[in-house]
Design a protein around this nucleic acid. Structure first.
Length: 668
DNA sequence: TGCGGCGGCGCC
DNA sequence: AAAGGGCGCCGCCGCA
């Protein structure tokens, strides 16, 4: 495998962190300072300053012969290459499928995807060097006072050296982790295509929303200042608000009790949404004192805490001239499950409860004519999804898999007792009602919450967390009974948790051996990243647990063996000597497997859709949104449903259901 | 002033 | 022994 590693250093008047790579690369003020390249096999190095040098002929040959052209976050380098290096500086063209991303390779290895953190996780870069950042600040950003770029030749030369050093480090990281499989690389390329296509934003709506949100935030701030004598000046000042409230109620133990939340092993006082609701609710019951003043303050915080309205500004920052936001998806962004993540304009967490297209038009018209809107922040956050729109003459075709994880989990177990659950899905019956019945309970709501909450060894806490979203209020004793009944009615799940945990331990004891659990496997690979426990999903996707260790932990009544591993998503603190670790337990493994397999089904469908040139605009874990010409809506809907409901070859027998809807704006 | 840490929020 | 976990973004806080 011959591979050329690239790294660009650039400068621009636009802010990369606000606009994202695509808009940044497309901006006319963006230019290349230098580019380093390394041939990963031979080790040949190049440093190119396009302002003063022609493109190195030997590098052109190396690229021509390379199987892959690699960069950390290659979408950035690819965009710079295609938008600037080729047209402005005579760099040779590189075919799309030759591009390869080292950051994506890091993510499939379950280590951080930033070069510095990846190297740190691999133990080859202990110390952070601030010089690189200083150089970027000096050369990549115009002087804030004069607006001029610094062109100091000495600094430019130093920048080049740093650029080359990054490529050398990247080469090491590449060698210490496993390459993406052909399928993973293909999925990454498909992600590039989706990112390049982008999602269209109703920028007029976004601008109106920003105006209204700014005004409302100002009003809330004024009210808070007035109520608290200037102690609290914004609804976002969580520390001030907490201190003020505690002082105001003279450390009333009842109030403190309601404010106390457990985080890990430590108890803390919080004033998050749940606590505020609890405090305001308790106010109406007997004997609880929460004066009008504090209640008013809490309600103002509630009103202001729709932080999601900041997304409208983000839409405007990222939208290009054609009103499209590009680069929102990260292939394997979730290292532990290999699901996608979304960045920049995060399309994965937009408020679900939202206005319909017609309501959106009405509200938009009200804002155009500067009408007063009641409950502004709430109204605005319900406009987030509808702010995503299809191009003129197009519609969204939207489809999501019904209860995908509820189907995948029993299917993965291969337990004959789980067939009954799959048969309920196959029959089209109501799974939540059936679950309740199997537990000897009549309320569908309880069946629903139990199904959503208890599949991964969660107990009272997990149930209550989900129950509150459905307005279900039960005592701890009642929930404990429900948990017990659910486990009794679903013995396949309990057995699976145990089997997963045992398999992980067994795999650690027998390196290089496949240990089967239902449709998945574990294998401990000693030579990879200080020992990596690999969970292999039915499609071949590998979930990695790097730096895995089998440890004997002593308990009160004897001890037990357990597997721990380095957790990529938790970055170590500045003074930490070891990467933060987590412990595997059965329910967690079952969850990782189920989420990962659901993600594999999405990736499979995206490949199928790519092969028929389906216009996928975006996706949200279990949901695919196509932006379709109005004349093709019917055909594409049918095609989308067929692709989503046909299980992949490795999942024959898994019942899938995904009925498409047609929308003028994005909605639930 | 810049930056890491943390609390908070939203979704699947 | 029991265990909800997977994400990313915004904005404040406190330190260097």
């Amino acid at each position: 495998m011959q591979c050329v590693l690239l790294d660009f250093e650039t400068r621009s008047r636009t802010d990369l962190t606000k606009t994202g790579a695509y808009k940044y690369a497309a901006d006319p003020s963006t230019d290349i300072l230098c580019m380093s390249a390394i041939d990963s096999e031979i080790g040949d190095e190049w440093l190119w300053y396009p302002g003063t040098q022609a493109f190195p002929a030997t590098l052109a040959v190396a690229i021509e012969h390379a199987d892959l052209v690699t960069a950390v976050n290659a979408e950035f380098d690819k965009a710079i290459w295609e938008y600037i290096a080729v047209p402005d500086y005579g760099a040779p063209e590189i075919e799309h499928k030759k591009w390869y991303c080292l950051a994506a390779q890091c993510r499939v290895n379950a280590i951080p995807s930033g070069l510095e953190n990846a190297a740190r996780a691999l133990g080859i870069n202990k110390r952070k060097d601030p010089r690189g950042k200083q150089l970027i600040k000096a050369l990549s950003i115009p002087n804030p006072v004069t607006g001029e770029f610094n062109e100091d030749p000495k600094l430019m030369q130093e920048m080049g050296e740093y650029c080359l050093q990054d490529s050398r480090l990247a080469r090491k990281v590449m060698a210490l982790t496993r390459l993406m499989s052909v399928t993973e690389h293909q999925d990454w390329l498909i992600t590039c295509d989706i990112n390049e296509r982008g999602a269209k934003v109703d920028t007029e709506l976004a601008r109106l929303a920003v105006t209204y949100a700014d005004a409302e935030r100002g009003e809330i701030a004024d009210k808070l200042s007035a109520l608290t004598g200037g102690v609290i000046t914004k609804h976002t000042q969580s520390v001030r608000i907490r201190k003020w409230l505690l002082a105001e109620c003279e450390n009333d133990p009842d109030v403190i009790a309601l404010m106390t939340v457990k985080k890990g092993d430590v108890e803390k006082q919080s004033l998050d949404k749940d606590v505020r609701t609890a405090l305001l609710d308790a106010r109406t019951s007997d004997g609880f004192l929460l004066c009008q003043l504090t209640a008013d303050v809490l309600e103002l915080v509630d009103q202001g805490s729709k932080s999601s309205v900041s997304k409208f500004q983000r839409m405007l920052d990222m939208a290009e001239d054609d009103d499209r936001v590009r680069g929102a998806f990260v292939f394997a962004g979730a290292g532990q499950t290999q699901r996608f993540a979304s960045r920049g304009l995060q399309l994965h967490n937009m408020r679900r409860d939202c206005w319909k297209a017609e309501q959106t038009e009405d509200i938009k018209q009200s804002m155009r004519t500067k009408q007063i809107i009641p409950n502004v922040m709430d109204t605005l956050s319900k406009l987030l999804r509808p702010a995503l729109i299809p191009a003129p003459g197009h519609k969204f075709v939207v489809s999501d898999w019904a209860a995908i994880e509820g189907r995948v989990l029993p299917w993965l177990t291969e337990d004959p007792r789980a067939e009954a659950v799959l048969d309920i899905f196959r029959s089209g019956a109501d799974i939540y009602m059936a679950t309740a019945k199997a537990m000897g309970i009549l309320e569908r709501q309880i069946g629903k919450v139990a199904t959503l909450a208890l599949g991964y060894q969660g107990a009272v806490g997990a149930f209550q967390a989900i129950a509150k979203n459905y307005g279900l209020i039960l005592t701890e004793a009642e929930v404990l009974k429900i948990v017990f009944k659910w486990r009794e009615a679903n013995p396949w799940a309990v057995a699976y948790w145990r089997a997963c945990e045992k398999a992980a331990i067994l795999a650690m004891r027998r390196p290089g051996t496949e240990v089967k659990i239902g449709k998945c496997q574990f294998m401990f690979v000693e030579g990879l990243m200080n020992g990596t426990l690999c969970g292999i999903l039915p499609d071949g996707t590998v979930l990695q647990y790097p730096n895995a260790r089998l440890e004997y932990v002593k308990g009160k009544y004897g001890g037990k063996w357990q597997v721990s591993y380095a957790k990529a998503s938790i970055l170590p603190k500045a003074d930490a000597t070891e990467w933060p670790r987590h412990t595997l337990y059965g329910g967690l493994i079952a969850e990782n497997f189920a989420q990962g397999t659901a993600g594999a089904i999405l990736k499979y469908a995206l490949r199928e859709l790519a092969s028929v040139n389906a216009p996928v605009a975006f996706h949200v874990h279990d949901e695919i949104i196509e932006e379709v010409h109005i004349r093709a809506v019917e055909a594409r809907s049918l095609q989308l449903q067929t692709i989503m409901e046909t299980p992949p070859p490795w999942a024959v027998g898994l019942p899938l259901e995904a009925k498409p809807a047609v929308m003028q704006r994005y909605g639930k």
